[in-house]
Design a binder for these strands. Structure first.
Lengths: 160, 160
DNA sequence: TCAATTAAGGATATAAATTGTCCTTAATAA
DNA sequence: TTATTAAGGACAATTTATATCCTTAATTGA
């Protein structure tokens, strides 16, 4: 059970967008080149972010993407779910109903105990992602990465 | 990001094994038929459990599987990891190294902040699975399911 | 001893999801 | 007007998940 690469890509892209001056837009082309990933495929992932309302896009030269909300109002979960969807990591197919000892019309008392546990674990994962947002990420990045390098990045994306 | 069906299957199989009298063995054929899943494919998953040391197998007529440890010593995480592996749900491919502003030999301070968050969420998921074991599951099942049906199941697997 | 049954596992086939590319369209800025 | 951009449809390639088939060796019971 692995998250797709797109998740990693858009998280890094959002980190960039959060560090750019407001009103400035960053193109798919630049984001793809900066991260060394295929532009067309990254584009699909960014479209997912746009459809989820996390980013806004503008057309034409100097167009591209910007965050659509303050960084503190965009959680990791928002981003992960925009790309991966909202379905639980565990899908119960109700194989208990195949039990040959059961009567056909037998009703079940609530969800399968196994599914309950797996869904709770899934929720614990999501809770952790919900607790982290782009503002917090920005602070961590600022603490970890050479400020000169960060500034270079901003200028790289800003230059025409 | 979805867990495979094999995970659901073996969890149900382990639930059965935990409810069977000690020393009795349950065959792949019976487990597959009981749950309405393909025998040969379920067999692969059960082999994973055996390789992980969670179950022991015996050959020949009346052979099959039994738990290799007390139910309380087999966690959901043990079972999930036996089938799905131990790799994190998030794989960091270090795309930060592709940053064109970086010098080639630049060293990083620890893991990427994004990977750190994702791994922590992964660990929260695993922690939840680690906290549940087959003994606890047995109690929940006993509370949820008609005792007569449970007993019928045990007899179904016990009869030759 | 013999026949039936079983897990283990190799080889292979099929289906689905992931990853990636190509192209057209409409909007927009310079 | 021209170059640039996001959106998105169509398609291709690759990888993973799902499933089947077959052989082997161990074991049980007749």
């Amino acid at each position: 059970m692995q998250l797709g690469n797109q998740v990693e890509w858009v998280l890094h892209c959002c980190s960039i967008l959060a560090s750019m001056p407001a009103e400035s837009h960053v193109s798919t082309k630049d984001l793809a080149e900066f991260h060394g990933v295929p532009k067309e495929y990254l584009s699909k992932a960014l479209q997912s972010l746009a459809q989820a309302g996390l980013v806004a896009s503008t057309l034409g030269p100097s167009g591209g993407y910007r965050l659509n909300r303050p960084p503190k109002d965009i959680s990791f979960l928002d981003i992960v779910e925009a790309v991966e969807g909202r379905r639980s990591t565990f899908q119960c197919t109700e194989i208990r109903r195949n039990n040959p000892c059961r009567k056909k019309d037998q009703r079940d008392k609530g969800v399968c105990a196994i599914a309950g546990v797996m869904h709770k674990a899934d929720e614990a994962w999501r809770k952790e992602l919900r607790a982290m947002n782009l503002e917090m990420l920005g602070k961590r990045v600022a603490a970890d990465v050479d400020p000169a390098l960060l500034e270079k990045g901003v200028r790289w994306f800003s230059s025409p």
